[in-house]
Design a protein around this nucleic acid. Sequence first.
DNA 1: ACCGGATTCGAACGAGCGTCCGAACGGCAA
DNA 2: TTGCCGTTCGGACGCTCGTTCGAATCCGGT
Lengths: 214, 214
Amino acid sequence: MEEQSRYDAKLIRILRAAAAVFAERGYHRASIRDISAATGVSLSGLYYYVDSKEELLYLIQRQCFETILENLHSDLRDVTDPERRLSLLISNHLGFFASNMSEMKVLSHEADVLSGDYARKITDQKREYSAIVSDLLDALAPQAHSVDLRRATFSLFGMMNWIYTWYRPDRDGPVNVLATEMTHLFLRGFGSGLQDGGIEGGGGYNATSMWRAV
Amino acid sequence: MEEQSRYDAKLIRILRAAAAVFAERGYHRASIRDISAATGVSLSGLYYYVDSKEELLYLIQRQCFETILENLHSDLRDVTDPERRLSLLISNHLGFFASNMSEMKVLSHEADVLSGDYARKITDQKREYSAIVSDLLDALAPQAHSVDLRRATFSLFGMMNWIYTWYRPDRDGPVNVLATEMTHLFLRGFGSGLQDGGIEGGGGYNATSMWRAV
DNA sequence: ACCGGATTCGAACGAGCGTCCGAACGGCAA
DNA sequence: TTGCCGTTCGGACGCTCGTTCGAATCCGGT
């Protein structure tokens, strides 16, 4: 963590600022000049750290998925109960998103902008993540599914990823409450009541990893 | 329907083509020249029908919400059972999306592009739609909610709207199956089995409105 | 045939875009 | 001090963008 060079530290600063600009203006509308202004680095100076605007987006997305997947593996290690594992996954996902709201929006909203090798590598990370979710859901309901696994996976991702359009911490409260409710909603549905000391067992399942991605 | 003038018909053709271009390239990346090429109308000729690129997006979105809300009201008329009403709403939403995939993507993905009066009017339509969903969910679980109403509403929208990122009719089957499963998922959760002749009562709740929006 | 409004279009304008180049700067090793 | 290399930047290039303007064309009513 403290082993990074001057160069790395500045690149990270640039990525963070770029994510904020991309989140606010959208990738295509945001200009390299905007990022230059946000970082204080001159227009051409940015190209010393990054080959192109597209690579900027790629590095942001790669860093995010790396962090999410690392934290997820660390959270799930030693946990076998399928429901607890799902609860942890949702906490991990939403926790990362809430702590990196700009990056979250870039991840969710600029998903099909990359092309070529950049796109291929990000797609691989997404596939790895999706497979984990699918396997986890599969383990959760070993009997014949009432809902197709693929559709259930994407429905869950929809619930979780869509929050970039509406979640605001000051209005919508802490993210662990959101994670608890979303876990309940996905597992038991809106129709059922939340039993006392229910699935969350007092909130002890919350993921504890560090969240800052970039 | 057949009362539209030459002018109106051509405008509608333009809106349809523009939606397809916006869906494929994204609003900001897509150029008026792309739309000109897709319609066969010359670059400057488009401005006889539309004041600006932004109005183009506005007209597409307005037409979509008008259609969705009209169809929804017509579907819900005469239906009082809350679960049936929710099932119809999901069928309506997904049915419209599947029949207007370009418009769906534009609706979901270019949500915060509009500004000024355009944005205000679309926001009003969205609020109307959200309020209907919230009221419907409220009626569904009159006892104390296990999940916050606002969060449940947006979770449902997330499940439904996210399909623009993954749904392909040839691979994922007809949309009424998807609607049935999503209704079940939202009401009962992933953990519960789909009881025989269950919530869907044999698929008889599918919405029947016409889907073409523009 | 002819008029007048509705419709269409080629050509251009100014602005902003991503990227590149060559010069300048900084601090450390010799 | 000198030389070197990692770093920074002003300025420019070529391109695409949304929009405009004035002229040309079409077409139904007289």
